[in-house]
Computed example of a mutant assay.
Amino acid sequence: MKTTFVFAHPWHGSFNKAILDTAVKKLEEQGKEYHIIDLHKENFDPVLREEDLALYSKGDTTDPQVKEYQEILKDTEELIFIFPIWWYDLPAMLKGFIDKVMLKDFSYIETKTGLQGLLTHIKKAKVITTSESPSWYLVLFGGNVIKKAFIKATLKGVGVKDVQWINSSYTTSGSNEKRNSFLKKIDRIFS
């Protein structure tokens, strides 16, 4: 099974990068294939520009990086998103990735009853996030953007249905012990 990571954090000294490194190490130990889409290090342009919007309804783009990412996703069976929750939402870089890469006729088609997802070859996904707020607060007061909008609407809309959300709360203010405990959890999840 080929795993693809979509990593959306600008700093490689971050806890998000430690999460990515932990997961990748487990896959390497198991001899599994993986690919990392590191949106910041690859200088992905998340802005949907006028020339792209002109092609949007046709499911096309002028951005060669979008086409490259689509080719990677075509060969993906497990999709892992790793990102911080900022302002109770996805980072702009990841939102731009969704806007530009998940195009019509690649990730979905429109039907009379709504979207029909085309990425059904992706058998499972994990959304691994970090936040300063506790997970219960994100669910209760943050409107639960991650679970309701990103997982149950966006990912489901493109055909990705078996999705697990794992969040590290109090990531900045918490103790090293708490962060290390979370990394052990990630280690177990990828075992």
Rank of each mutant, 00 (worst) to 15 (best):
M1H: 11
K2R: 11
H9Q: 12
W11E: 13
N16L: 06
E28N: 11
E28Y: 00
E29K: 12
G31Q: 12
D38M: 07
K41M: 12
E42A: 07
V47E: 06
A54E: 15
L55S: 15
Y56W: 09
T61E: 12
D63Q: 01
I72W: 05
K74S: 09
E77V: 03
F81K: 00
F83W: 10
F83R: 01
I85Y: 02
D89T: 14
A92N: 07
L94I: 04
F97R: 08
Y108R: 11
I109S: 08
I109P: 05
E110D: 06
E110M: 08
E110Y: 10
K112N: 13
T113G: 06
L115G: 06
L115I: 10
L119M: 15
K124C: 04
K126H: 06
I128V: 08
T129M: 08
T129C: 10
T130L: 09
E132V: 09
L138G: 07
V145A: 07
I146E: 09
A149D: 13
F150T: 01
F150C: 02
A153E: 13
L155A: 06
K156D: 05
G157F: 07
D162H: 06
W165V: 01
I166N: 02
S169G: 08
Y170E: 11
T172E: 14
S173L: 14
G174P: 12
E177G: 13
N180E: 12
F182H: 07
F182Y: 11
L183D: 00
D187E: 15
I189W: 02
